[in-house]
Simulated assay, not measured.
Amino acid sequence: MYVNRTIKSFLLLWIATLIIVGPESALAHPHVFADTSLNIVFDQKGLSGIGVKWVFDEFFSSMILEEFDKDHNNRINPNENKGLEQGAFQNLKKYNYFNWIAIDGRKFVIKWVKDFRAQVKKGRLVYYFFVPCHLKASQNRKTVVISPSDPTYYTALEFAVLNPVTIKGGNNFSVKYKIAPSTIRTIYYGMVHPTELTLSFKLKK
């Protein structure tokens, strides 16, 4: 069920202002919620990149679908997908696509992503995209920290309860990971310790 057009127009303007255009002005608690799953992809040389999946809350989903699901059939066709990517995803680039990443302690800036795709599942909007992040394996263990988080805390991204992390193509490597709140990094003026995935890998002997 869609919100009426007056409310929808106001809310879309609010969302555009606070999350898409300028989340710096967001209020002190989350207004958008998303469950996050990460697919860690390896190739023959080492880490290839990170597949990201976001499942949004029903309220935010209905707002975005009202705007971008032009035929209101609860499906995203290729043209609608393109419009949604341009209107409600691409400008997250300046916020590192809500993924804070560090490689061996050094921050990794996401310059581009690929394979963006949006779907509707059980009334909830789902984003999929891939973050290229090439890191060659060696005999020494390398560490990658990935924290799905919005520094303004307008959007709350939490790891999904079921299958929050999957590994693809890692048979040639010794791979370890854990999910836990950060002990050193905070967001929103030090008020929140975001949850992060700490991944390490090296060549198998």
Rank of each mutant, 00 (worst) to 15 (best):
N4H: 09
T6P: 01
F10H: 07
L12T: 06
W14D: 11
I15H: 13
I15N: 06
T17M: 11
T17D: 10
L18D: 12
V21H: 13
E24M: 07
T36W: 15
T36E: 15
S37E: 11
L38N: 13
N39G: 11
I40L: 15
V41E: 06
V41W: 10
D43R: 12
K45F: 10
L47M: 12
S48T: 03
I50M: 08
G51M: 07
G51S: 02
F59C: 04
I64F: 15
F68C: 02
R75I: 03
P78I: 05
E80I: 10
N81Q: 11
K82F: 14
K82Q: 13
G83N: 12
E85C: 11
E85N: 12
Q86H: 13
G87S: 03
N91V: 01
N96C: 12
F98L: 14
N99P: 03
W100F: 13
K107E: 15
I110Q: 08
K111Y: 00
K114A: 12
R117Q: 14
Q119E: 15
L125I: 05
L125F: 03
Y128K: 10
F129N: 04
V131M: 00
V131R: 01
P132H: 08
L135W: 08
A137K: 01
A137Q: 03
S138M: 05
K142N: 04
T143Q: 02
I146T: 05
S147R: 12
P148D: 09
S149W: 04
D150H: 05
P151M: 02
T152F: 09
T152Y: 07
Y153H: 13
A156F: 05
L157W: 01
L157A: 05
A160P: 01
P164F: 04
P164R: 10
K168Y: 10
G170E: 11
F173G: 07
V175D: 01
K176Q: 14
K178M: 07
T183K: 12
T186H: 07
I187A: 02
I187G: 04
Y188H: 12
G190N: 04
M191P: 05
V192M: 04
P194T: 06
P194H: 00
T195R: 03
K202S: 14
K204A: 02
K205I: 08
